[in-house]
Amino acid sequence: MRPAWSVVLLTTLLGAGQGLFLALYGADLSDAARGRASLAPVFVAAAAIGSLALAAAGLAASFLHLGRPERAWRSAAMWRTSWLAREVIALPLFMALVALYGVLHWLGQLQAALVAGALAAAVCVALFVCTGMIYACLKFLQEWHSPLTVLNFILLGCASGLTAATALAASLDPALETGYGVAALVALALAAASRAASLMRNAGLRPLSSLQTAIGVKHPHIAQKAQGAMGGSFNTREFFHGAGAARLAGVRWFFAAAAFVAPAALLALGLPSAAFLVQFAGLLAERWHFFAEARHPQNLYYQAIS
């Protein structure tokens, strides 16, 4: 697949925003469990606004992906069958609940905020599942058709959000910084493990479709001589990224370093802001690779121009 920058941005920004909210709500919950009200209100406000801003940026990116953005309101209609429609419902709901949580917290309504936060957290997890399932439900994109896809979206989003929370806490509520830092490192380690697992799984995948099943001719030697168009088509533009195996491997090493190793080191050194920025760049590369790695069976029909 050719990675679309709009979708790469949408999924990474959204993941970070969701992770940041879960980090905030986690701290609030443990605070409440230990007997109340030690979170700095300005930290809570900054984290809630940060989470909203990231989600809003993701939402804006999603519009860039549409051919007819003015009709986007139609896209919630088929929520019974389409994970994309479900995501379209979950995202604004998540943003509204985070805003409600932030406002209640700011007004000092801590009990009510906890309830709103619980709802937001539930919708947040649902949103992660929707985003992941958009890709994981396509069974012939074998690289994506795995529970690991959903798990990766969740863990990478949490790692990114916890790093952002560490950075915010460092300046606004230093009491939380160490706890967040440790949680971010744990999330990073888990995300690295599950992403590595999906890379290993995909390296060993055997495509179920072949040119033989594509045209229904049983012969070991089939070569395409014409694809029906000389100047390319939607099929050649949308499904080929044009990067060779070497470049893919390069991106893989880059995101291993930038999304996992470097942020872990920066977090350990107490530089959470730098860690978040480097990690975000790494996650963009990670998402680019996620799309580029998927081999669409339709490509079998577009192997040679003439």
Partner: peptide, 21 residues
């Protein structure tokens, strides 16, 4: 009704759908 999200083209294994530019 189509919003041009291209998801259906991704979901067709045969490459039978084309977005009108």
């Amino acid at each position: 009704k189509c919003i041009g999200c291209k998801y259906c083209a991704w979901a067709c294994p045969y490459g039978a759908r084309e977005l009108d530019e």
